[in-house]
Design a protein around this nucleic acid. Structure first.
Length: 732
DNA sequence: AGCACGCCGACT
DNA sequence: GTCGGCGTGCTC
């Protein structure tokens, strides 16, 4: 009889664990990685369970090749949490566990392996300060990199600075840098900033603080509801202080890399212990290192984006979800589509610790949870002496002359605010020069060859680009069909920037979108130019609506609010309201409250009216009953099956077959569709979807559990792909 | 997902 | 004559 069996989670789409005989030496505990034979390949998996015997016949069992960890990488509560997530999102456990591990650990690398690490010597730092290397740019770049980053590992240098070795040799010969061996966690620099004290909390903040701190060690969900400048971050900092004092650790989630540096900076200034930052800008090695620092307990504050909800944090005492309404918490692509915000709430609940969701524009889900008594709402009114709620009004685009996308009253307001020394922010959710290229002769419109979409004009780069599939082609000067000249129709950020340069000569314009700001560094540099006052007008997309506050911006213009007003998606209104309030919140400070002007063809639209006259809370209060009446979330539950295929009909046919497997449905469940997707053809594939609606979570979950295996067993024609999205954000 | 096996079309 | 297309089946 075998000495024992371990059940291993492997990164495959198969919805089960795999049994292996234990190796002769080494008893792997659950949470430990093992290398195992799998078909003709060798894979790294995670032991989930030990057992005395297997249901499989003896001859099918194979033996673990190697046990990779001495101690579990994932502790029991985290493993169980991942198992729950796998069940809830109906995604294979192996892939869920894989999503929780950094790539290098997934590949079987040893987190404790010592790696070559280059750091500057005292002489090197001196030389850098004296700019001694002006005639050797490669060496200078490397030295500067090592001085500012307090060193870098060889892996990281390979990834980010190809050809660094020659420069390193030369610098080492001068005795300015040296090579040391460090393990991953040691190799991560944690610069100690100047120690700051969290500012004294105000009255409302104290109340919020008391509520949360009074709950430490107990489960509880809090919605920290406060406008920009009401001091949410101060509450986070104070709670973390209390958590650390108890000997516990804290996990902070934030929506995007753009905001991480600021938040991390804030925490670094206030706390002595190292902070692990997990975000998408890290190299593979840096991510493994940060993960390891969290796992080892060395970093007791862990800050990260979406996937950090799976970070191992021993002694976790509180979880924060900053800007909890932000859609980027929901994984939108790939197989495992989870909501980091929802999972954070669940993880905290299972651990018996508080979770704090912060937002100035809470999601309807969270507001509903407050109504149900599941969340406690903690309101933070704007503090006296800080940002004041800006004056918001709507410009009727039908009643005013509009010059290239900007109405005269907005232009006049810009003149006024610029003359008074203020900065102006213009928000436009459309990058590129123009959304359409039109022929002046035959009305031909430049289409994408692989999508049912128009190509966007990018004038500066002289190209047409499809924002749905990434296709690009040269910008034609004449219509390829009839030879007449072509014309750009509509306005994107690039064109608005051009218009502003003409209309406001001598006033520096800073554009914020993916096309000009590809890296976090360039984004930071642009923000610095705004802060320094070099840039006077800011024009940009979503990028401008998050994170950064611009105290010297006194006027915010929203160039087009109308896309969200009549969208078919049930969440469009909520989204629009959140975006408008968030962008409005970028402006103003105590002495100079901001002014916000929203351009619209429909100034009387109830959404705009309620939002402008009575604010977000009133808007939500009026819109929630509508959701309830239509049974959309949070009053109903959704799961969406999306299918796509290279052949026009195959996706729909597959979903029809899937619907056919559903059998008789309980009264509380409905299948809607299948229907072709709003954009039928995208990136050369034809898309269709099938929506499952349920009034309660449990029956929907139960249905999915018995239905999905049958869908999986269906014959899959070549070129067909399908995914399940539980709690989808968008259904059209 | 990988990976191999297997059976039909245009190439050195 | 073979290289390679993707359908189908399997992975403890």
């Amino acid at each position: 009889m075998a000495s024992g069996i371990c059940k291993v989670a492997l990164d495959t789409p198969l919805r089960r664990l795999f049994d292996y005989r234990l190796p002769d030496q080494g008893k792997p505990e659950p949470g430990v990685r093992v290398r195992v034979p799998f078909g003709r390949q060798k894979l790294v998996g995670v032991v989930v369970e030990l057992a005395d015997s297997s249901d499989l016949p003896e001859e099918k069992l194979r033996t673990v090749i190697e046990v990779l960890d001495e101690a579990p990488l994932l502790d029991a509560p985290l493993l169980e949490f991942l198992g729950w997530a796998s069940g809830y999102y109906h995604h294979p456990v192996g892939q869920v566990i894989a999503a929780a591990l950094p790539k290098l650990l997934r590949e079987g690398r040893d987190p404790h392996a010592r790696v070559g690490h280059w750091q500057p010597t005292v002489e090197g730092v001196q030389a850098q300060a004296e700019q001694a290397l002006r005639r050797a740019p490669r060496q200078q770049a490397l030295l500067e990199r090592l001085v500012t980053g307090t060193g870098a590992s060889e892996d990281t240098l390979d990834e980010t600075q190809p050809g660094w070795r020659a420069a390193a040799r030369a610098l080492a010969r001068r005795g300015w840098i040296e090579r040391v061996l460090l393990d991953a966690a040691e190799a991560t620099p944690h610069p100690a900033g100047p120690r700051d004290v969290a500012p004294e909390p105000g009255e409302a903040q104290l109340a919020a603080l008391d509520a949360i701190v009074g709950h430490l060690g107990k489960a509880g969900a809090f919605l920290l509801d406060g406008v920009t400048g009401s001091g949410k971050t101060e509450v986070y900092l104070r709670v973390v202080e209390a958590v650390l004092a108890r000997g516990d650790s804290a996990l902070v989630l934030c929506p995007e890399i753009g905001l991480t540096p600021q938040l991390v900076e804030r925490f670094r200034q206030c706390f002595a212990p190292p902070i692990a930052a997990l975000h998408s800008q890290l190299t593979d090695r840096e991510r493994m290192a940060a993960w390891q620092q969290a796992a080892s307990g060395q970093a007791r504050i862990v800050i990260g984006t979406r996937s950090a909800v799976f970070a191992p944090v021993p002694g976790l005492g509180v979880i924060f979800v900053d800007e909890e309404h932000d859609p980027s918490y929901k994984q939108q692509d790939g197989g495992f589509r989870y909501s980091a915000r929802d999972l954070a709430v669940l993880r905290a609940q299972r651990l018996g610790i508080p979770v704090v969701l912060g937002s100035a524009t809470p999601s309807f889900e969270s507001l509903h949870n407050v109504e149900l008594g599941k969340f406690t709402r903690l309101g933070l009114p704007a503090r006296a002496g800080t940002a004041v709620v800006p004056r918001v009004s709507v410009i009727d685009l039908r009643a005013h002359a509009v010059h290239r996308g900007i109405a005269v009253p907005l232009l006049q307001a810009m003149d006024r605010h610029l003359a008074a020394g203020g900065q102006v922010l213009l928000y436009l959710n459309r990058r590129g020069y123009a959304p359409t290229l039109l022929c002046t002769g035959c009305n031909w419109i430049a289409p994408c060859s692989s999508c049912d979409a128009r190509m966007t004009v990018h004038q500066r780069s002289g190209r047409l680009a499809c924002h749905h599939c990434g296709a690009e082609e040269p910008l034609p000067e004449r219509c390829p069909r009839c030879g007449y000249p072509v014309q750009s129709l509509g306005h994107g950020t690039e064109r608005v920037e051009e218009t502003l340069a003409e209309r406001f000569p001598g006033v520096a314009v800073e554009r914020f979108d993916r096309d000009v700001l590809r890296t976090a560094d360039s984004l930071e540099a642009a923000f610095d130019r705004v802060k320094a006052g070099t840039a006077r007008i800011l024009v940009g997309t979503q990028m401008l609506t998050k994170g950064h506050h611009f105290p010297d911006v006194t006027l915010v213009g929203v160039l087009n609010a109308d896309q969200g007003l009549f969208s078919t998606d049930f969440r469009a209104g909520e989204r629009l309201a959140q975006t408008l309030v968030q962008v409005a919140g970028r402006a103003g400070r105590a002495e100079r409250p901001g002014e916000v002007l929203i351009q619209s063809q429909y100034p009387d639209h109830p959404l705009l009216q309620v939002l402008v006259t009575r604010g977000y809370a009133a808007f939500a209060a009026s819109a929630l009953p509508e959701r309830a009446a239509t049974h959309w979330p949070p009053f109903g539950r959704l799961a969406l099956v999306r299918a796509s295929s290279t052949k026009p009909e195959a996706a729909l046919q597959f979903l029809r077959a899937a619907a056919g497997e559903a059998g008789p449905l309980p009264r509380s469940l409905h299948l809607r569709g299948p229907v072709p997707a709003a954009m039928l053809r995208r990136a050369g594939r034809y898309h269709a979807q099938l929506l499952v609606e349920g009034s309660q979570r449990a029956p929907l979950q139960q249905f999915l559990s018995q239905w999905l295996p049958r869908v999986e067993a269906l014959r899959m024609p070549g070129g067909l792909r399908w995914t399940l999205d539980v709690d989808p954000l968008e259904v059209f």
